[in-house]
Design a protein around this nucleic acid. Structure first.
Lengths: 190, 190
DNA sequence: GTGTGTGCCTAACTGGGTTAGGCAACCTGT
DNA sequence: ACAGGTTGCCTAACCCAGTTAGGCACACAC
C-alpha cells in the first residue's frame, strides 16, 4: 500500500480547504480522512485529536489574515489604510468562510500565545497611527474597529443582510466613511 | 415509574439553563436528558431532533432579548436610548452566555420567520429616531450598531479583552460615547 | 374498576472520535 | 544488493452522541 505522505502541515492545509468547502464545524477528522483517501485512525499520528486539528486550522487562518492585513496596510495611511485593512479582513472572510470561522475558534492559552494575535493587535494600532489618538482612546478605538469588522463580517456571513436592501457592500462603504470621520473627531471625554 | 411531565416548553427552558451553565454547543440532548433524570430517547416525543431543540433555545433567546431591549428603549430617546439598548444587549450576553450564543445560531428560513427578528429590527430603528438620519443612511447606521454590539460582545465573551488594560467596561462606555457623537454628525456622503 | 391514550421506557443502529498494536514500505549503511 | 531499524498507515476495538421502532404502564375518562 502506497504511503500517502501525510504530515501535520498537509492535514492542516487540507483541513482548511475542507472547512472552506463544507464549513468549519463539519470539517471533522472523519471527513478529512475520506478526502485524503486514508483511514481516520491514520490521522492520529500527526494530530493529537480533533481539537488539535481545529486549532491548527485556526492558527493557519490567523497567520494568513495577518499576512493579508499587513500587506494591505503597508505604505498607506489614514483612511486609505483603514479601508485597505478593513477590506483585507472582509475579503478574506468572504473568500474563505471556513478558515475565517476557524480564526474565531476558541484557543487555549498556549495556542493563543503562539498565534498571530500580537501581529493583529500591532496592525490595528498601525492603522490608527494616522489618526493620532492619545491613550487610552487609542485602545478603545482598536476595540471599536475590531468589534465593527468582526461583527459586520459575522452578520454578513450569517446572512443577516441578505434579505434587505441596500446590499451589504453599500453599507460597508458607508460604515467605513463613518468610521473614518469618527476617528478624525473622536470625542475627548464626557 | 413516575412521569416527568415533559413538554416542548420544559425542554427548551431547561436546555436554555443548561446552555448558560455549560455552553450552547455542549447543551446536547444527552446531557439535557441526564439533567432531567430521563432517558435520551424520551426527549424525541417532544422535539424532533437536536437541531430542533437548539432552534427552540435560539427562538427563546431572541424573544427574551427583544423583551429586554424593548423595555430598555421605552420612554427614552437619543443617547439615553442608545445606551440603554446597548446595555440591555450586552448585559443579556454576560448574564446568559449560552442563550446569547443560541441567539446567533443559524436558523432555517421557516424558524427565522417565526422569530423575534422583526422586533429587533424595529427596535434598532426606534433608537435611531432621536438622531434623525435619512434613508439609506439609517439602514447603514442600523447595521453599524448591530455590528458593533454583536462584535464587541462576541469578542468580550471570547476573552478578547481579558488580558489587556483597560477593562472592557471602560471601552464599552467610550465606544457608546463615540457612537453617539458619530450618529449626531453622520457624514452625508463622500 | 375498566378501558384508552400516550409518556417514557428498552433495545438497537448509525456515525464520529480515539487508542492499541501490527505489518510493510522506506531509508540507511555496508 | 541487502539487512537493519524506523515509521507510516492499517485493522480492530471501544466509547459516546444522536436517532428510530416498538412496548409497557401510568393517568385520566367513564
Amino acid at each position: 500500500m502506497a504511503r500517502a505522505g501525510l504530515t501535520t502541515e498537509t492535514l492542516v492545509r487540507a483541513g482548511a480547504e475542507l472547512a472552506d468547502e463544507i464549513g468549519f464545524e463539519q470539517a471533522t477528522p472523519t471527513e478529512l480522512a475520506r478526502r485524503l483517501g486514508v483511514r481516520t485512525a491514520s490521522l492520529y499520528s500527526h494530530v493529537r485529536n480533533a481539537h488539535d486539528l481545529k486549532t491548527g486550522i485556526a492558527l493557519l487562518a490567523l497567520e494568513e489574515l495577518a499576512d493579508r492585513a499587513s500587506e494591505a496596510v503597508a505604505g498607506r495611511a489614514g483612511k486609505d489604510a483603514l479601508t485597505a485593512f478593513a477590506d483585507a479582513y472582509r475579503d478574506y472572510a468572504l473568500q474563505h468562510p471556513g478558515r475565517f470561522a476557524a480564526a474565531r475558534y476558541r484557543l487555549d492559552p498556549e495556542a493563543a500565545a503562539s498565534s498571530a494575535g500580537a501581529r493583529h493587535a500591532q496592525l490595528s494600532r498601525a492603522v490608527l497611527r494616522g489618526y493620532d489618538l492619545p491613550e487610552p482612546q487609542q485602545t478603545h478605538a482598536v476595540r471599536l474597529l475590531g468589534s465593527v469588522f468582526s461583527g459586520f463580517v459575522g452578520l454578513e456571513g450569517a446572512g443577516g443582510f441578505r434579505h434587505s436592501a441596500p446590499d451589504a457592500q453599500e453599507s460597508w462603504t458607508a460604515i467605513l466613511d463613518a468610521l473614518d470621520s469618527l476617528l478624525r473627531t473622536w470625542p475627548a471625554r464626557s
